[in-house]
Amino acid sequence: MLAWDILIRWSPGGLLPRPWEVVQGLTELAQKGLLFKYIVASLFRVTWGYVAAAVLAIPFGLMLGWHRRGELALNPLIQILRPISPLAWIPISILWFGVGDVAALFLIFMASFLPLTVTAMNAVKNILPTHLNAGRNFGLSPAQIVLKVIYPSVMPQLIAGLRITLGIAWLVVVAAEMIAVNSGLGFLIIDARNAGNRYDLVVAGMVMIGLIGLVLDLGMRRLEKLKSLRWGYASE
């Protein structure tokens, strides 16, 4: 904080805000009701894009991992699509969905879908055959095997993948909001710059993005620490 303050004082141009100015900016936004509104807007987009991706990608990835042929058929496609930055989908998403919420949701969905598919696929492959055999041996039905053996087997890896992917989704929402919509923290940043170089608000937006990202990550880490899910990281 102190270094920040001193560096700004010495730097030429005077566009960048000092810490106190950022706090003032945040207060100003909060008073206008924009801060809360934008945070909710961003979280809303992340939640829906991410949850939709998780709901589709996890069963899809589990199926691919379970059926070797499915994986052989689709894995090359997945591997080609995976290195493409989600941001490269911006033009296409605007072409398909126009400028608006749907385009932003689509970007977040694209950013989350492939990593989650790959995580689920790999998680299935790490299920121990002895555990599946033990399940069959004790007379479990196929549905019970899914519930009592496969599900707990893949959970530790899935949770880790979900945590990393949520981080990616949070990165992407900022970019999506800069381009496709007119609300949210990403929009706040780009709008503050365009509307009169309000760099105090730009940095205020960045600070909020960082804080919320941290809170999301901490929340996911708490999930990882549940004992019945944590086994995957233990000495086994």
Binding site: S153, M155, S228, E236
Partner: peptide
């Protein structure tokens, strides 16, 4: 008839 495995047969999440 129950099979007892060489190792890692118990469920680590239980």
């Amino acid at each position: 008839r129950i099979f007892v495995f060489q190792e890692r047969g118990v469920f680590p999440w239980l």
